[in-house]
Amino acid sequence: MSRLILPLPGNETFARLLAAEGGWSMVESETRRFPDGETYFRILSEVKGHAVDLVCTLAAPDDQFLRLVFAADTAHRLGAAEVTLVAPYLAYMRQDKVFNPGEAVTSQTFARLLSATFDRIVTVDPHLHRYPLLSALYQIPADSLHAAPVLADWIAANVAAPLLIGPDEESVQWVSGIASRIGAPFEVLRKTRHGDRSVEIAMPDLSAHRLRQPVLVDDIASSGGTLIEAARQFSAMGLPRPICAVVHALFAGDAFALLSEVAARVVSTDTVAHASNAVSVAPLIARHLNTLPLRKES
Rank of each mutant, 00 (worst) to 15 (best):
T13A: 14
R94I: 05
A264W: 05
G166H: 00
V267T: 03
Q173N: 12
L206S: 10
L90H: 08
A278H: 00
Q95I: 12
N100L: 11
S144A: 15
A160Y: 06
T74E: 13
A230T: 13
H76C: 03
S107G: 10
Q139P: 02
L145V: 12
G183I: 10
L78G: 05
F14G: 06
K191E: 04
A51R: 14
G225M: 01
V266Y: 04
L78Y: 09
R232A: 12
F118R: 04
G224I: 10
R33Y: 14
P185Q: 06
T13L: 13
M26C: 00
S171P: 04
A184G: 00
A157V: 05
I43F: 06
A59Y: 11
S45D: 03
T271L: 08
L66F: 15
A87F: 08
Y40T: 11
E21N: 15
R120L: 01
V172I: 09
H127A: 03
N290S: 15
V188N: 03
D125Y: 05
M93F: 07
D63Y: 12
V124S: 08
A252N: 04
S235L: 07
L44N: 15
V86I: 13
G195N: 03
H209R: 14
L137V: 10
V124P: 11
T57N: 09
H288M: 07
S180W: 09
E46F: 10
H50Y: 08
G183C: 12
P240N: 12
R3Y: 13
L145H: 02
V47G: 10
D270Q: 07
L58G: 00
Q108H: 10
I43P: 13
H288L: 03
S176L: 05
A71F: 14
A255M: 10
P242W: 00
F41Q: 08
V199A: 03
S280V: 01
S29D: 02
A147E: 02
Q233N: 04
H194P: 04
P126L: 06
V105A: 01
V98E: 15
H50W: 04
P9S: 11
G238W: 02
E103W: 15
A157K: 12
L189N: 08
G166M: 02
R130T: 11
R190P: 10
L54H: 01
D36R: 09
D73N: 14
A91R: 00
A72R: 11
I220V: 14
A252F: 10
R16Y: 10
V199D: 02
L216I: 14
G49Q: 08
P88G: 01
V86M: 06
F118T: 01
A286Y: 07
S171N: 01
S135I: 00
N100E: 15
A104G: 02
L137G: 07
E21K: 09
Q233A: 05
R190I: 09
R67F: 02
P132V: 05
S25Y: 03
H127E: 06
V124K: 01
A264E: 15
E12I: 08
A249Q: 12
E297I: 11
L239R: 00
A230R: 03
V272S: 06
S25I: 02
D254N: 15
M1I: 02
L164W: 06
L164C: 00
A263K: 07
G79W: 12
A71M: 09
D254A: 12
R193H: 00
